[in-house]
Each structure stands twice: as C-alpha cells, then as structure tokens.
Amino acid sequence: MTKNISIVEKVHSANDQLASENKQQLNQAALFSINIMASPGAGKTSLIEKTLPLLKSEYKIAAIDGDVATSIDADRAAEAGATAVQINTGGQCHIDAHMLQNALMELDLDKFDLLLVENVGNLICPASFKLGTDKNIMIASIPEGDDKPYKYPAMYQDVDALIINKIDLLPYVKFDMDYFQKGVQMLNPDLITFPVSCTTGEGIEEWVKWVKEHIKDKKVS
C-alpha cells in the first residue's frame, strides 16, 4: 500500500549544515572571509592581485581558488603575496561547503586575518551553495553587458557587495549604467557597489577600505 510521508526539507540542507560548520570555524579564528563570485573573465583573480599589495604589509592573507582544472589562479594569488590553496572541482561548476571545509584543513586559520575564496567562474550555480563565509560578493564587468541582473537574478539577490570591474572600458562598450543599476536595485536595494578598474587601479582604494574595516570589526567581535 502506498503511504505519503511529509518531509518539507530544503534540498540544500546538507550543504547549509556544512556551511554553518565552516562559519563557526572561521569565527573561532576571528578570520574575516569573502566568497568572490563572477562569470569567467570578470576579473576575480585580477581583483585579488590588485587587492593584496595594499593589504599584505598589515595583514596575513590566505586565498582559496576554485577551478575546474589547473592551478593558474592559485599561482597568481601566491605570486601576489597570499598563502594559496587550489581546489580543483573536477568538473563541478561551483565550490560547495564540503570542498571549502577540506581546503580550510590545509590552512592554519589562526595565522590569518583575511581569507579570499575565489569561486568557479559561473553566474548561476555558486549562488545556490552557501560556503559559510562572512561576505559573499560578486564582480560584474562592463563587457558582459548591462542586462546581467535581469538574466541572473539569483546571483544578485543574496550578495553583500558588488564590484563593477573594467570601468575603463565604458567609453568603448555599449553599457547603460542606469539600466544596470536599476536591475540591481530591484533585486538588492541596499547593495554596496564599488566601480573599479583592475587595469588602471581606479576605485580599488575604496574597496580595500571596505575590506580593512571588516577585518578590524571581525577582530574585535
């Protein structure tokens, strides 16, 4: 005889559980952490390369780089002054909480002040998998087009900060900033936004200031 069993369990519950374990571990170490999400080529690694030189004299920084294959990004982060760990996701389009947990084991967390997690380049999947980091941020870049908030709402909804990269290309590319910002505002009204260029360095200081404030707050809390 058929019996109906009521469950009502979130499909993401297993991942969410591991994410909260990660959060606890990072809190114990008073380590401020950022999950960086973006499409391929938006400038995740470039942002890390631009950010590290402005922080590394004051703070110890670890970077965890997720990629489908290769260690190119981790090598670039290490070159810029971070202790880098590479996660090869073996074809998976995002880092999940379990992968981050394994990567955290390779680091002596108490020794660091800032952890940058570079997610796999993708605008859909990483949004669904919480990692347990303090902040989730995304990078949108000008050449990707101004319609991305409308096409990838899930990604824009839950992030804590938005970096708009490659603003040096604005004169050469069709990109309606008002239309873009309107889409962002619909999904995430109070989102803090940093227009930057990782090529010219414009706007990077404001972003780094935000990171520094959060590192300090985490130490005190």
Partner: peptide, 12 residues
C-alpha cells in the same frame, strides 16, 4: 519564488 525543497514522498 526562492523555494527549493522536497515536500513529501510516496513509499510502499
């Protein structure tokens, strides 16, 4: 619109 869960199952 953000829901994603397993509501119930039928078993024998």
């Amino acid at each position: 619109g953000k829901e994603f869960h397993l509501d119930s199952i039928n078993i024998v």
